[in-house]
């Protein structure tokens, strides 16, 4: 009996280790490729920084980076705002029709990205008569990212103690003042988390942004174009920079929460 348990413990641990290898090996491997000259069979590796210097002088790259940043920032701000308001509404008030509201917030999770992309393309083009642009890309990325932002805020806010707000209200604080002076100071990490996740999703989004933007480049559409015409080593450098930025951002958020610099509502126990 004990042996069986130990076997299954080690088997599961092994599967987890293999999963990490499966998920991270390709990412680290292209990071390695981005620093070598002989990218097809890099053994022994001939190190170079050429791909990074080529990337630095690619004008498409600068424009794409700027556009991706704009889409990320716009989407992050909108999604974090709506998600925080929505999660507060859902958790705080004993109202019926909660399920319907939750469905609208979470529904986009169940709509494929390509479908969001083509339907907003068609809607803008044929109903509103507008060409797609960065603004419409931000709006439709927000519908998709909102679901994730909502889950992030919701998961943190379930531990928030609304009696603090009630107390503030009893002492005469208006709802807005109460939000900025009582609620927000304790829940801001959740809001930041929602912003960060939506930012990253929109920054790296391909299918939604592509159909909204046409020929306007973003980093994912540049990567897609390069991939289509046969891979060029600049893409390894691009991917490595983006992956690094993503992991650094997540690490910062994690440390912020772990070090206790930031605490949400009441402690867990």
């Amino acid at each position: 009996m004990g042996d069986g348990r130990r076997t299954s413990f080690f088997l599961q641990a092994l599967l987890l280790a293999f999963l990490y290898l499966f998920l991270y090996f390709p990412i680290f491997y292209i990071a390695f490729l981005s620093f070598v000259e002989n990218t097809t069979w890099p053994f022994p590796p001939l190190y170079t920084l050429e791909w990074y210097s080529r990337l630095a002088i690619m004008s498409d790259f600068h424009e794409g980076l700027f556009n991706s940043l704009l889409i990320g920032l716009g989407t992050g701000a909108l999604a974090a705002l709506f998600a925080t308001a929505g999660a507060m509404a859902l958790l705080r008030y004993p109202v019926r029709r909660k399920a319907l509201v939750a469905l609208l917030y979470l529904g986009p999770l169940f709509v494929a990205e390509v479908l969001i992309g083509i339907s907003t393309l068609m809607f803008n083009r044929n109903v509103l008569g507008l060409p797609g642009n960065l603004f419409s890309a931000i709006l439709s990325n927000t519908t998709h990212a909102l679901a994730f932002a909502f889950l992030v805020v919701l998961s943190q806010l379930v531990r928030y103690d609304w009696r603090m707000d009630d107390a503030a209200m009893v002492f005469g604080a208006r709802p807005l003042r109460c939000f900025f002076e009582v609620t927000l100071p304790s829940i801001w990490p959740a809001v930041l988390g929602a912003f960060l996740v939506s930012f990253l999703l929109a920054f790296n989004n391909f299918e939604i942004s592509f159909y909204n933007l046409g020929a306007v480049p973003t980093l994912p559409t540049i990567a897609w174009g390069t991939l289509r015409h046969g891979i060029e080593p600049e893409l390894y450098a691009l991917a490595t920079l983006v992956n690094l930025a993503v992991f650094v951002a997540l690490l910062l958020l994690y440390l912020l929460i772990r070090t206790g610099l930031v605490r949400i509502g009441l402690p867990e126990d």
């Binding site: 705080r92 609208l104 909102l146």
Partner: peptide, 30 residues
């Protein structure tokens, strides 16, 4: 203003309306 239903609506409706206009309507259009 302190009616919970009104407050609920003020908080929840903007996001819900946003998804309706920018996702549900486009889907209906196709």
């Amino acid at each position: 203003r302190f009616d919970p239903r009104i407050q609920f609506a003020m908080l929840a409706l903007p996001g819900a309306a946003f998804v309706f206009v920018f996702l549900v309507l486009p889907l209906l259009s196709i």
